[in-house]
Design a protein around this nucleic acid. Structure first.
Lengths: 114, 114
DNA sequence: TAGCGTTATGTTTTTAAAAATATAACGCTA
DNA sequence: TAGCGTTATATTTTTAAAAACATAACGCTA
């Protein structure tokens, strides 16, 4: 085949006890929950099942003493979910790291000479 | 649950046309092929099937005008495989990038304050 | 020239991941 | 108080990935 453009790519995430706790997808999920106030709406927007979204939410929360995504069922609108201040800090800091990482990728993408 | 040690983690790889071409696993495979002179031995060492290893080798080679892993069947020992100079450069440069990335991860692992 | 160990390749089977389905609980609202 | 839309959760089904299996080709070596 042909030798096209080589680009450096990658992913970062946050581990707890060697287990993945937060990455790009989960951060996006949290953001959409915050924007919509609903796990279901966030799931629909990201084209995942409600179950999958809820499992992720649950998994994230399990790593904190008090949940960073707080949800309740029933009531006006059928239920709702919000992101705590701590959770928002989480999002913010992940974005900051992601930005630095993107820079890293760009800076090093040109270092090939095959 | 409890709020344990957060650590930054990640992976990098090299893309061609938006498709993954080379990452940590494939580099290790190439190194083991070089060390043993055999795709089969490399596969055994990495606990993958020969087929899987060969598919990876094939996939890597398909991205270059001339293969970076050259193999032949029959003959002394039943067959053999070698890594070209170009392939060795590939390995070297990936390692260099990986080293820089490891530094990035370490440097940024402490930037949490939840 | 028969056998050996490897490369090369296709097919089948198994396993794991993802998706789909089902259902209960809940608290507002009409 | 019946209904709505959501959260919460378990179970089943489907799909995709991985593994296993099978077989041919090859060129040395004995």
């Amino acid at each position: 085949m042909k030798q096209a453009a080589f680009t450096l790519n990658g992913r970062i995430w946050i581990d707890v006890d060697g287990e993945k706790m937060l990455g790009h997808g989960r951060v996006e999920l949290m953001e959409r929950i915050q924007a919509s106030g609903s796990i279901r709406q966030a799931a629909l927007q990201m084209k995942m099942s409600y179950k999958q979204a809820w499992d992720l939410v649950n998994h994230i929360n399990s790593h904190f003493e008090s949940p960073v995504i707080i949800s309740q069922r029933g009531g006006k609108g059928g239920g709702s979910a919000v992101i705590t201040a701590e959770g928002q800090k989480l999002i913010q800091q992940f974005h900051h790291l992601q930005q630095k990482f993107n820079l890293f990728l760009r800076e090093n993408s040109g270092s090939f000479s095959f």
